[in-house]
C-alpha cells in the first residue's frame, strides 16, 4: 500500500480546520471555544459582581451608567477529544483506488486537523465486533509527533473479514462524552446496525459525522451473464450473503433503485439526528473532497 501521508498532503491540510459546530465541555487547555467561562480574549457575557471576584474584570463603564458593579466574562478555550472509527472489513479493500486507502487518508487528514487545533484524537479500527485502538501503547494522539507515529501505524492497517459497526462502536469503553467529534468512515454497505452506533455517539453528546466511501463500480456495476455473487466478507460459498444473479436490464434497474433507496435512508437518518453525512467515490481526489464536499457539508472549514 502507498504511504498514506506525504508532505504535500500535510501542507494542504495546514490551510484547513475541523469545524466544531456545537460548543462542548472538553478538557482544559486547547483552542476550542467551550460553554465554560475562562480567560480567553473572547468576550462572553456580563455578571454582577460578587465578593471574591477578580476586581480587574469589573466593567467600570457599566458602573458609571448603572451604578452597579458588573463583571466581564470571557469564553474558556478547551481541548476536544475526537474519535475516528475506520471500518476495516474486507469490503473496504475494494475499488480503484481502494476504499481502504481513501479511508485511511481521510483518517489521517482528520487526525492532523485535530492535533493541529491542540485537540486529542483517537483512531479506532472496527474489525468484527471489536473496536481496536490504532496503537495499543498510545491510544490518544496528542501533538504532531504522536500524529506521525499514528500515521505510520495507519500504513500497516489490514482490511479483512467483516465488521459489525454497531456492536464495535457501542462496545468501545472510551466514551469521551461531550468532548469532541466522532467520525465513522465506512462504505455502510453492511447488514450491521450502524444506526445504533451513530445514535449512541449522539447520546453521548458527541458531534457525529458519517463518511461513506464507495468505489465507482459499486455505483455503476459492469457485470454480465449469470453470476454467483460472492461477498468479499464471507468465507464460505453457502453464506446467505452470497447470491446467484443473472445480469439483465431489469436487474440493473433494481440495483439502481436499491442503491438510491439505501442512500436516501442514510440521509434521512442523519438529517433527523443532526448527524453530518458525506459520501464520496474513490476516484474523486481526496483534496477535492476536503475542500469542496466536506467544506460544503460543514465538516471542515
Amino acid at each position: 500500500m502507498k504511504n498514506v501521508v506525504d508532505g504535500g498532503f500535510i501542507d494542504l491540510l495546514d490551510r484547513l480546520d475541523l469545524n466544531v459546530r456545537e460548543l462542548m465541555d472538553g478538557r482544559f487547555g486547547g483552542t476550542r471555544r467551550s460553554k465554560a467561562y475562562g480567560s480567553s480574549p473572547n468576550f462572553a457575557d456580563f455578571r454582577e459582581y460578587q465578593p471574591g471576584d477578580d476586581l480587574r474584570r469589573i466593567d467600570w463603564n457599566l458602573y458609571g451608567r448603572f451604578e452597579k458593579l458588573y463583571l466581564r466574562l470571557y469564553e474558556d478555550e478547551r481541548q476536544l477529544h475526537h474519535h475516528i472509527y475506520i471500518d476495516c472489513s474486507a469490503s473496504m479493500d475494494w475499488g480503484t483506488p481502494e476504499k481502504s486507502w481513501y479511508a485511511l487518508r481521510m483518517a489521517v487528514a482528520l487526525s492532523y486537523l485535530g492535533v493541529s487545533a491542540m485537540d486529542r484524537v483517537s483512531v479506532f479500527l472496527l474489525r468484527g465486533g471489536e473496536c481496536l485502538p490504532l496503537m495499543k501503547e498510545e491510544r490518544t494522539i496528542v501533538g504532531r509527533d504522536a500524529f506521525y507515529r499514528a500515521a505510520e501505524a495507519m500504513n500497516r492497517v489490514q482490511f479483512s473479514g467483516d465488521a459489525d459497526i454497531g456492536e464495535a462502536v457501542t462496545s468501545n469503553p472510551d466514551k469521551a462524552r461531550g468532548g469532541g467529534i466522532s467520525y465513522i468512515i465506512s462504505d455502510f454497505m453492511t447488514d450491521s446496525d450502524w444506526k445504533a452506533a451513530a445514535e449512541q455517539l449522539r447520546s453521548n453528546r458527541r458531534e457525529t459525522v458519517l463518511i461513506q466511501v464507495l468505489a465507482r463500480d459499486e455505483l455503476t456495476p459492469e457485470l454480465s451473464g449469470k453470476l454467483m455473487l460472492l461477498d468479499s466478507e464471507t468465507e464460505e460459498e453457502e453464506d446467505e450473503r452470497n447470491m446467484r444473479k443473472e445480469m439483465t436490464r431489469s436487474a440493473f434497474k433494481a440495483y439502481a433503485a436499491a442503491l438510491e433507496w439505501h442512500q436516501n435512508d442514510i440521509h434521512e437518518f442523519c438529517a433527523s439526528r443532526q448527524i453530518s453525512f458525506i459520501t464520496t467515490v474513490t476516484d474523486i481526489p481526496i483534496e477535492k473532497l476536503l475542500y469542496r464536499e466536506a467544506a460544503t457539508a460543514g465538516i471542515i472549514k
Binding site: A90, S91, M92, W94, G95, K99, D187, M189, T190, D191, A215, E218, P221, L223, G225, K226, L227, M228, L229, L230, D231, S232, E233, E237, R241, N242, M243, R244, K245, S250, A251, K253, A254, Y255, A257, A258, L259, W261, H262
Partner: peptide
C-alpha cells in the same frame, strides 16, 4: 452454472431483490 464473481459487498444486490 453461475460464474463466481467476488464483490466488495452484495448488500445492495440483495436489497435489489425487493425492487425486482
Amino acid at each position: 452454472r453461475h460464474d463466481d464473481y467476488i464483490l466488495s459487498s452484495t448488500y445492495i444486490w440483495r436489497l435489489s431483490e425487493r425492487f425486482q
